[in-house]
Design a protein around this nucleic acid. Structure first.
Lengths: 202, 202, 202, 202
DNA sequence: AATGAATGAGCATTCATTCAT
DNA sequence: GATGAATGAATGCTCATTCAT
C-alpha cells in the first residue's frame, strides 16, 4: 500500500526543510547549508540520501503534504455530523494557517504547488495520490450531509465537489487575507462559508 | 490619477519579464541575462532603469496585473446583463488561463502573489490598488444582479463578495486542473459556477 | 619651452579629476561618470579629448602637480632670506596638506606617484621635468643659504640635497601624522625641521 | 599577547596577495581570481575565510607589515653598536627595496598606507600597534647612541625621533629613486644619511 | 556512514567605451 | 561638437556539489 518508505534520516532532512518553510522561508531560495543546519546534519549527508537540492525540497513538501492530510483526515473523522465535520475543517484551517506553509494553502491553490517542477513520473504519481486523498475527505463530507438530509443528492458529482471546494476557498481566502476583511469576524466568515454550501446544495 | 508612469524602456523590459513568465518561467529563477535577451536590450540597460533584478520582476508583475485587470474590466463592461457579464468573465478566464501567469490566477490566489516579497510601502500601496480594482469588478457585477432581481440584497456585503469569489474560484480551479476533471465539459463547469452564485444569493 | 599645451576643455576635465581627488577620492576608484559630473561635461566628451580613463587621470595628476609646483615656486620666490624661504615652504605645506592630494604629499613620496602606471615615454619624460623643477626649488634654497653664510658649501651636492629633502620630510610627516604627535605643536615641528637643516649643513 | 591568530589557510591566502603585490601588482587592481590563483586555492575558499576582497587585501598587507617589522627588529637586535645597528638598517632597506612592497616603503610613507581604507576600529588599532613597534626600533637605536655618547640627549624626544626618520627617509628615497641619483653610490648614500643623524644630534 | 572544507560554475552588478542624435 | 543612452566584458560573490578524512 505504502508506495514510498522513507528512512529516519530522510525524514530528519525533510523536517529540516519543513521547519525552514514553516518559518517563512521561500522554497526557491532555501540553500543546502540552511537545510543541513536546520536538519542538524552535515551538508554531505544530504547528498548521501538525495540526488539534488531540488529533490530534497520537492520530496519534503510532498511528505509534509501527506502528513498534514493524514492529520486533517483524522481530525475530521472524529466528528460525527456534517456541520460538526465542516466546522472542524474551519478550525483546522485556522490552526493551520498560522504556518506560512500549510495543507490548507495547498488545498486552496490546489494544483499550484506542482510549480516546483513536478515533471518526473514519480512526482506526478505522488501528486495524484494527494488529490485522491483530498477527494476522499470531500466524499466523506458529502456522505454525511446526504445521510443527514442536509444535501439532496440531485446534483452532479462535479457540482457537489466544487461547492465544497468553493466554500472552503472562501474561508481560506478570508483567513489569508484577513487584513482586507477587517469588518468580518472569523465566526461570520465560517458561517458565510457554511451558508454557501447549504444554499448551493439545496 | 495615474500614480506611476513608466517609460517606453521600462515597459520594454517589463514585457521581457512578462513574456518569460508567460512562457512558463518561474519568477524566482529568472536571470537578468534572460530578461535582457527577452526584452532585446543589453544587461546593463536594465540597471539604467531599475535598481535590482528583484525590482524589475516585482514591478513587471504588478504592471502586468494592472494591465490585465484593465482589460478584464473593459471586456466585462461591454456586456449588459448579469448573466452575460458573468459568462464573459468565464470566457476571459478561459482565454487567460492559456497563460501560466494570468490575472485569473491572481484572482484565484488573491493575496498569494505578494509572496514575491512585497514589503515596501510603495509595493504595499500598489497591491491595495489592485484589490480595490478587483472589488470594483465584483461590485459592478453585484449591482447588475441586484437591478435584474437575480440577487435579493438581503445578505451582507462580505457574503455576497465571497459568493462571487468562490464561484469564480470553482471555475478557475476547473480550468487549471482540467486534467483531473476529464468528465466535465467547460460548459458544464461554467454552468456549475453560475449555479453556485444563483443559489447562494437567493 | 612649454612641451604640452592643453585646451580649455582638457583643463576643464582635469579640474573635474583634481576636485574629486582633493575631495578624498581614490584615483584608482574614480569612474568616468564621476569625472564627467565633476567636470560638468558629458561622458562622451571625455573620450573626444582623451583615449581612456587612465589617460585622463594620469594627465590630470601631472597637470595639477605642475601647477602646484609653479605656485610653490612663486610663493618661495617672494621671500628673500634662507630662513624666510624655508618657513614659507612650511607654511605652504600646512596650507597644502588640507588637501588629501597635494604637491607636498608628492614631494614627500617623491617617486611614489608614478605607480599610476607611468610607463609610456611621454609620461616618463613629463615626470623627469617635475623632478627637475623640484630640484630648482631646492637649488634656489641652497644658493640663498650659501649667500647668507648659513650653509658652508663644503658638502657634496647630493648630501645638501638630501638634507633639505629629509628636513622637509620630517615636517610633512609631522603634518600628515599629527594624530601621533599630539604633544608637539606646529611651530615646534617647523623649528625641529629647520634645526635639522642648520645642523646637518654645518 | 598575540591579538590576532591566523589559520594556515588565512596565511596561505595572505601569501597569495603578498606575492602579487611584491610582483608589482597594484593592491587596488588585484582581482579575487588573481588572489585565488596566486594562493593556489579556489575562489570560493577565499570567501570561506574572509568577508570580502577588501578584507583579504587589507589584512594581508597588515600581516606582511607585521612580519617584516619582526624581521627588521630581529636583524637590528643582532648588532651591538649604534653605527652597526644603523648600517644594518641600511642593509635591510637595500635588501627590502627589491620588493615593490616593503616595510621600508611603509616606514617611509609612514601613515600613507592606511589609505587602503583603514577605518574600522580593529584596523585602526592594528595600525597603532605597528606605529608603536616602529617607535620601539627607533628608541632602541637612540638608547644605543646615547650609551655610546654619540648622541647627547639634550634634544626633545620629538626632535630625536624626527632626525632618525628623516635620515632613514633620505636613504630610502635614494634607493627608490636611484635612477635620478646616478652619480651617487649606495655607500655614499648610506654615509650621507648617517652624517645627517650624527650632525643633527650633536 | 557522516562530515564540512574546498571548488568553480553561474549570476548580479558595475562601468569603460561607443555611437546615434 | 557634445551628449548620454546603450552595451557587454569583467568581476565580486554565492552556493550546489564533491570528496578526502
Amino acid at each position: 500500500m505504502r508506495s514510498i518508505e522513507y528512512s529516519q534520516k530522510d525524514i530528519l532532512i525533510f523536517n529540516g526543510v519543513i521547519n525552514l518553510i514553516k518559518g517563512g522561508a521561500n522554497p526557491y531560495l532555501i540553500t543546502v547549508s540552511e537545510i543541513a543546519a536546520s536538519a542538524g546534519v552535515g551538508k554531505g549527508t544530504i547528498y548521501d540520501y538525495f540526488e539534488s537540492k531540488e529533490e530534497v525540497i520537492k520530496k519534503a513538501i510532498l511528505f509534509n503534504f501527506n502528513n498534514e492530510i493524514d492529520y486533517f483526515y483524522k481530525k475530521i473523522a472524529t466528528k460525527k455530523g456534517f456541520k460538526e465535520k465542516y466546522y472542524e475543517i474551519f478550525n483546522s484551517i485556522v490552526e493551520n494557517l498560522q504556518n506560512k506553509f500549510s495543507t490548507v494553502n495547498i488545498l486552496m491553490t490546489l494544483g499550484k504547488l506542482p510549480e516546483f517542477h513536478i515533471s518526473e513520473k514519480q512526482d506526478s504519481c505522488e501528486f495524484n495520490k494527494h488529490i485522491l486523498r483530498i477527494q476522499a475527505i470531500i466524499d466523506d463530507l458529502l456522505v454525511s450531509g446526504y445521510k443527514e438530509g442536509i444535501i439532496k443528492k440531485i446534483e452532479s458529482q462535479y457540482y457537489q465537489n466544487m461547492v465544497i471546494k468553493s466554500s472552503l476557498f472562501s474561508f481560506t481566502n478570508y483567513m489569508s487575507m484577513q487584513m482586507i476583511y477587517k469588518e468580518t469576524s472569523v465566526k461570520e466568515a465560517m458561517d458565510a462559508a457554511y451558508k454557501i454550501v447549504i444554499k448551493s446544495l439545496n
